[in-house]
Design a protein around this nucleic acid. Structure first.
Length: 706
RNA sequence: GGCGAGGUAGCUCAGGUGGUUAGAGCGCAGGAUUCAUAACCCUGAGGUCGGGGGUUCAAUUCCCCCCUUCGCUACCA
């Protein structure tokens, strides 16, 4: 028996948890934690809210509340919904608490005193009026590539380019709106370039057995050569840097957040927490692919420098991303299925969510959640295969034996479920239980669950083959054999379900009228390292009260969820809603069957649109594109290039000279390498033919439309 | 632009140190059945494994190029 420290990525407390988080991190982590506990391992399953960092402060400013208010709100929402779903954390902590502050400061100080950091001076933007340095995100300006005026210092959200604050044109402070000045500051850097040479190359070199997406990503970073990375920031919201002369500085969230795993452990076990992070304890991080560098490079580097016997991660089973109805899940665009809402809107369907998300877990590549697929999986797999098998066995038992296990002699051919003549491990364990255990130990949760379901399929097949409802009329002995075998399958299936669907498992066990001790479960789950055990109910055992294990999901429930997402897509697209290429991706996920009326929008939303009349002064076909025309437009004194997907409807020469309606402030977008600076609005006929929207009398190019 | 991970049946995904008929679930078609939440069981149709070149007796599996999706990262302006 060993200690296993299992961590699940700390959810960032600026929004609730959604199905992507669950499928990628929390459900697999929970299954793993449950299995290891069942196997009798000493497990600590650690998580908590990550409550520092710039996006939280931005959100707080936007809402006019304090950062603490924001994190308090989401910490509660997230924690409550995890608890209700049954994620079996031993502790769900948070990084704004005292233990964490103390421990992360001590960690920093320890490294500081070892001389692990490099002190580096640099010039950063400083807001004189607000009296503070500005994080990249706090600087707003014009994007140098797309001219979007609302670009942030680290990224332009319109065109997606990665920026540094000094690249921004017309930088302004998001705090005061004033023009920031450059001012010298000092921060402490982790010299990752040196640590790569002395430690990371070799350590990561030994991890080729990790998942290919994880190992490949790490290799990629190492090949490019790591660079020193600042572990402190000039910011107010965070853990203060615990050394003299560091006023107004906090620990970098990615320095401090992983330490949150340790401080949560300490909070839970003040006396022996260190045993879970040193010695022969085994550390496993469950994360999403966006966290790989922090958990596979930076945090291990920190732990290594710390020394003191700290263990390094044994396995980092990072998953890819889950898409929703054809689009990336996005917190800011509200394109998500939020756990807290799911729990309310789909009551008593926790295990259904666990099951579906496990079966589509993005273990090797991005995967896709759709509500229709969810419905199908629940109805045909959980209800049709698993629930149905349970129900028919229990109903037959009730009908023929009033729920009491009948006397069965030696099961004879052809009714035997498995071969009883061999001397080795039990064939059913070898064929079903052990493969599930092995797959789980190998972090292949999706396959493990599928293998579990195969046992239910086998049960249905066995019943169909031997038809006890016919046998009962002719052969009482054989009927007893068949139903007995079927009950044993169901019993073991109930045990096998536990890590995946703990509630359904426990319901089924109680319908079988059994309660299984931890020791018995252990001998079941140790199949592999030990022979394992096939559980059987004895003659005379009385089953419990039967009931349906899962309920079918009707179409209207699913339709309501889809409609909800459609409404989200519609409002997101409201600003740019018209025919044309650029909007396609926004609404492509769910296609409305007919042209439906769109939800009402506020005037303010409409007023955001800069609509202009423009004159086409040149037009040519875009090479290697069937549908695209490149138009040059006169808009006032300005000339603009717009790429429009209308080549199937118009020849270039027939467009020149026309006046068109232009959405002038649509985010630029590159198509076929040409940047399109706006969108031409068209009417679409019933037969799909496009028609220009032109003023009835010619007006000056650039005239605004409202 | 560079790097990493993908691109496999209508859909969602497995798999492949190169070698007879490439898999599963769902969906679809046909059959069988009634113990069961019109569920279950059987059978079948469906893929030149992103495209093009190369190595080889043989490539979907190895090499090169290209297209494409996702992610990481750079640079230019």
């Amino acid at each position: 028996m060993s200690k296993i420290t299992i961590t699940a990525a700390l959810p960032y407390a600026n929004g609730p948890v959604h199905i992507g988080h669950l499928a990628g991190v929390y459900i697999p982590a929970d299954i793993h934690a449950r299995v290891q506990r069942l196997r009798g391992e000493e497990v600590l399953f650690i998580c908590g809210s990550d409550e520092h960092g710039v996006p939280i402060t931005l959100r707080a400013r936007k809402e006019g509340v304090t950062s603490q208010d924001v994190v308090d709100r989401y910490h509660k929402i997230i924690g409550d919904s995890f608890k209700e779903l049954g994620i079996s954390f031993d502790i769900y902590s948070r990084t704004s608490n005292a233990t964490h502050k103390e421990l992360s400061q001590a960690f920093f100080k320890n490294l500081y005193e070892k001389g692990a950091f490099k002190e580096i001076r640099s010039e950063q933007y400083f807001d004189e009026q607000a009296g503070q340095f500005l994080a990249d995100r706090y600087i707003v300006g014009t994007c140098p590539s797309c001219k979007n005026e609302g670009a942030y210092g680290d990224q332009c959200e319109k065109c997606g380019s990665t920026l540094s604050p000094t690249e921004l044109l017309n930088p302004k402070s998001a705090l005061s709106g004033t023009v920031p000045m450059m001012k010298e500051t000092v921060n402490w850097y982790l010299p990752l370039d040196e640590i790569q040479e002395t430690f990371l190359n070799e350590w990561l070199g030994g991890k080729s057995h990790w998942k290919s997406n994880v190992y490949g990503q790490c290799k990629s970073w190492l090949n490019e050569g790591l660079r020193p990375r600042a572990m402190t920031r000039d910011l107010e919201w965070g853990v203060p840097v615990p050394i003299d002369g560091a006023d107004g500085k906090v620990l970098y969230v990615w320095f401090e957040a992983p330490i949150g795993y340790i401080s949560a452990t300490k909070e839970l076990r003040p006396d022996d927490w260190e045993q879970w992070w040193t010695g022969d304890s085994r550390l496993v991080h469950f994360i999403g692919k966006d966290n790989i560098v922090f958990h596979c490079i930076i945090f291990p580097a920190m732990l290594h420098l710390r020394g003191d016997g700290y263990v390094l991660p044994e396995q980092v089973p990072a998953n890819e991303f889950l898409n929703l109805e054809g689009q990336k899940i996005s917190t800011s665009r509200n394109w998500a299925v939020w756990l807290n809402e799911y729990l309310v809107e789909m009551p008593n369907r926790k295990d259904e969510l666990r099951y579906v998300l496990t079966s589509i877990a993005p273990e090797t590549k991005d995967s896709e959640f759709t509500w229709k697929d969810y419905q199908t999986r629940v109805n045909s797999e959980l209800v049709g295969i698993l629930g149905n098998f349970a129900n028919r066995v229990l109903v037959l038992m009730q009908k023929y034996y009033e729920g009491v296990m009948p006397a069965v002699g030696t099961v004879r051919e052809p009714y035997a479920l498995f071969d009883r003549s061999g001397a080795g491990d039990h064939p059913m364990v070898v064929d079903y239980v052990r493969p599930v255990v092995d797959l789980l130990n190998n972090y292949q949760f999706r396959d493990a669950q599928f293998k579990m379901m195969e046992l239910a399929r086998l049960g249905n097949k066995y019943l169909a083959e031997h038809e006890p409802w016919k046998l009962v009329k002719t052969d009482a002995e054989a009927t007893a054999m068949v139903l007995s075998e079927a009950v044993q399958v169901l019993y073991n299936l109930a045990l096998l379900m536990e890590p995946f669907m703990p509630e359904a498992s426990s319901r089924l066990l109680s319908q079988l009228g059994v309660s299984v001790s931890a020791d018995d479960k252990q001998s079941f789950w140790l199949a592999g390292s030990q022979p394992g055990k096939w559980f059987e109910l004895a003659e005379g055992h009385t089953l419990g009260a039967a009931g349906l294990l899962f309920q079918k999901i009707e179409d209207d429930v699913i339709d309501a969820q889809i409609a909800k997402l459609q409404a989200t897509a519609a409002s997101a697209a409201a600003l740019a809603q018209a025919a044309g290429v650029a909007t396609d991706s926004v609404v492509a996920g769910i296609e409305a069957k007919e042209e439906e009326a769109k939800p009402e929008v506020a005037y303010d939303d409409f007023a955001k649109l800069d609509l202009r009349v423009a004159t086409v002064i040149a037009c040519e076909k875009v090479e290697k594109a069937d549908k695209l025309l490149k138009l040059t437009l006169q808009v006032g004194t300005e000339e603009r290039t717009v790429v429009s997907g209308i080549a199937l409807h118009f020849q270039p020469e027939e467009v020149v000279g026309k006046q068109v309606l232009l959405l002038a402030n649509l985010a630029p977008r590159k198509m076929r390498g040409i940047e399109s600076q706006g969108m031409i609005l068209m009417a679409e006929d019933a037969d799909g033919k496009l028609v220009f929207m032109s003023p009835s009398n010619s007006v000056a190019p650039g005239s605004s439309v409202s």
